[in-house]
């Protein structure tokens, strides 16, 4: 199957749509944690299914100047006009500083704290990014509750787009970094072919309005 890449204009528009959605997500997280969330430029790419894991690993490595090491991942599915997977990836160290910020009691087992916090943070970020994208494309979608996908595993072991049954995937990556030491979260959205085309139509409509 051949696949049509996004034009530079479409890619630019998508990046800006995600940038605005990311800003809303960062503000939502900042409000919950009462810290400043540093944002960086989101990145978008269309990749073939067998290249997804490598592409995600490369994006993360370049965002933080090096091998991401093991990550803990939380996923949420989304569906309706756009469908796909929203996956939040956390570095191993970040969880402790996050627990401090959220003021969680130490009564729970550490893994239990990690799990609750990461699900909560993932839900805030995914929800805000997805809602932000939907609003700008004048559509809406539903999403599932967050579930823990992997704890302390290498990135290339958690993503298998072939298992999703896709040929190509639109990969969107945004990076949130807290002032708190060691905490960063990469939010990755993966969408299959028909969503790539739905998005293309939405972006074209925005570009025509310019």
């Amino acid at each position: 199957m051949t696949f049509q890449e996004y034009t530079p204009d479409q890619e630019d528009a998508l990046q800006e749509v995600v940038n605005i959605a990311m800003g809303q997500a960062g503000a939502a997280l900042a409000q919950v944690l009462d810290v400043y969330v540093a944002l960086s430029v989101p990145r978008v790419r269309i990749v073939s299914a067998d290249g997804v894991a490598d592409a995600v690993q490369a994006m993360i490595a370049s965002a933080q100047d090096g091998d991401p090491g093991d990550v803990t991942a939380v996923r949420q599915g989304f569906f309706n006009s756009l469908r796909g997977e929203s996956i939040a990836l956390f570095g191993t160290e970040g969880c402790n500083s996050l627990a401090d910020l959220m003021g969680h009691e130490q009564a729970l087992e550490k893994d239990e704290i990690d799990r609750e916090l990461l699900l909560e943070v993932s839900n805030i970020l995914s929800g805000a990014v997805l809602n932000g994208v939907a609003e700008q494309l004048d559509t809406d979608f539903a999403f599932s509750a967050p579930t823990l996908m992997a704890m302390r595993q290498p990135v290339n072991r958690l993503l298998d787009a072939q298992a999703l049954g896709w040929d190509y995937a639109l990969l969107v990556e945004v990076n949130f970094r807290l002032e708190a030491p060691g905490f960063s979260c990469h939010l990755v959205l993966l969408m299959p072919e028909e969503s790539i085309e739905f998005m293309r139509r939405g972006l074209d409509a925005m570009l025509e309005g310019l």
């Binding site: 940038n19 605005i20 800003g23 809303q24 960062g26 503000a27 400043y36 969330v37 944002l39």
Partner: peptide, 12 residues
């Protein structure tokens, strides 16, 4: 002109 709408971004 920014999408970073955190009060701290504006303050900075």
């Amino acid at each position: 002109v920014s999408a970073d709408v955190q009060p701290k971004a504006e303050e900075q």
